[in-house]
Amino acid sequence: MTSPLLEIRSLHQQFETFKGLATVLNGVDFVVQKGEEVGLIGEAGCGKTTTMKCIMRILPMPPGKISQGEILLNGKDLLKVNLKRVHGVRGISMIFQDPTAALNPVFSIGQQLTDVAKYSLASGQRPSKREIQGSVIKVLQDVSMPDPERIMKNYPFQLSGGMRQRICIAKALIGVRDLLIADEPGTNLDVTIRDQILRLLYTLVENRAIPVILISHAIGAVRNLANTVYVMYAGSMVEVAETNELFTSPKHPYTQLLLAAVPRLTGGGIAKGITGRPPDYLKPPAGCRFHPRCPHAMQVCQEEAPVLFDAGDTHKVACFLYR
C-alpha cells in the first residue's frame, strides 16, 4: 500500500476561552489517499471546519492551540513548517462555505484572482502579466463563467450567490496542486443552483484528478462524490467507511440516527431524531462523547473513550459495540 497523501494523527485542537479550555478537536484521525475523494459529514459544531482550518493553518493561535497530533502531507509534518513558508510546501486550496464572506468586496474579481495566481505560481517561476491574465481567464472558463473578461471587471456585489461561489471555486483551482478542500459549497444556495455548483465541482475533480475533501450538511451530496466517508461527532471521527457501505449499513449509533433523521423522498414519515444536545466543549462528557445521547450506552462508554475499531475491510467504528 502506498503512503497516503494526507494523514492526520491524533489531532487535538484547543481554544483558550474566558470560561476555560475548550478541547474542540479531541483526537482526530483522518486519511486521504492519493486520487481519492473523501466526504466528511456531521452536525453543526462537531469540528469539521476546524479540522480543515487546522490543515490550512488559518486558525488564530492564540487563542487556539494544537496540544497534540500531527498533519502529514506526503510524509511531511505541516505543523512543523514555518507559517511563512507553508505555501511553498503545500498546494492545498479551500473553498469556503459562504462565498460572500470569502471575497473581498472592495477589489474586483480580476484583481483578486490575479493576486492568487501571482503568488501561487511564483515558486521559482516569474510569470508575465499576460500569462497570469491568461491563466485567470482559463480558470474562469473552467468554472463555466460566461464572458470572463467582463466578469473580471466586476465586483462581488454585482454577481449572484451562485456566480460568487463559482469565483471562489476558480480561486481555489488556481493554486491547487495537492488537495482541494470544499467546505459546504452551495449550502447557502438554492437547490437548483447548488446542484449546478456540485455538478461543476464533480466534473472539475474528475477532469483534473485532484483529491478532494468534501464537507457537507447535504449528506446526499457527499454520497454522490466521495469514495470514502468520515462521520464526525463532537471533535472526533466516529465512523469511516467506503461510501456505499456507510449508507447501506451504518454501524455507529450516531451515524444510524443521523442518517435516519434525513427525510426521504420516498416518504415514510419523520424519524425521532436524536435526544439531547451536542456536548459543551468546556465540559465534555467522560468516556465516549456520544454516550449521554446514545440508545446503546453501556457502563464502559462512560469510563473509556473508544478508538476506531475495525468492523470490516474498509469500515472502522469508534464504538464499544464493535470491539
Binding site: V191, T192, I193, R194, D195, Q196, L198, R199, A218, I219, G220, A221, R223, N224, F247, L259, V262, R264, L265, T266
Partner: peptide
C-alpha cells in the same frame, strides 16, 4: 432532480435527470 438523496430507492423516485 436536483435533490441529493441517500438511497437508490429515492434515486428511482426522482424524475429523469433534468440538468438545472
Amino acid at each position: 432532480s436536483s435533490i441529493p438523496v441517500l438511497t437508490d430507492e429515492e434515486e428511482a423516485v426522482k424524475p429523469e435527470k433534468v440538468m438545472s
